[in-house]
Amino acid sequence: MAWVVLVISGLLETAWAAALHSSQGFTRLWPSVIFGVTLALSMAGLAFALRTIPLGTGYAVWVSIGVVGTALIGMFVLGEGFSVPKALCLLAIVAGVVGLKVLH
Rank of each mutant, 00 (worst) to 15 (best):
A19I: 03
L72A: 11
V97S: 11
M1G: 10
V102W: 14
E13S: 08
I73M: 12
G79L: 09
V5P: 01
E13R: 08
S22V: 00
V4E: 02
G81C: 13
V5I: 15
V5F: 06
V7M: 10
H104W: 14
V102C: 07
L103V: 13
V33M: 10
P31K: 08
G99M: 14
V94A: 15
L50H: 07
M1H: 03
G36A: 11
G36M: 05
I53L: 09
V33Y: 01
K86P: 06
R51C: 01
G10M: 03
L12K: 05
E80L: 13
I34T: 09
W16H: 10
V102T: 09
L103I: 13
V5W: 05
K101L: 15
I34F: 07
G45H: 03
V102M: 14
G66C: 14
M43T: 09
A87T: 10
V84T: 12
L78M: 11
A17H: 00
A2H: 15
F82D: 09
A19Q: 05
L39F: 14
H104F: 08
G99N: 12
L29N: 02
A47Y: 13
G74Y: 14
V4R: 07
F76Y: 14
I8Q: 02
G96D: 13
A71F: 06
T57D: 05
F26T: 01
V4I: 14
S32V: 05
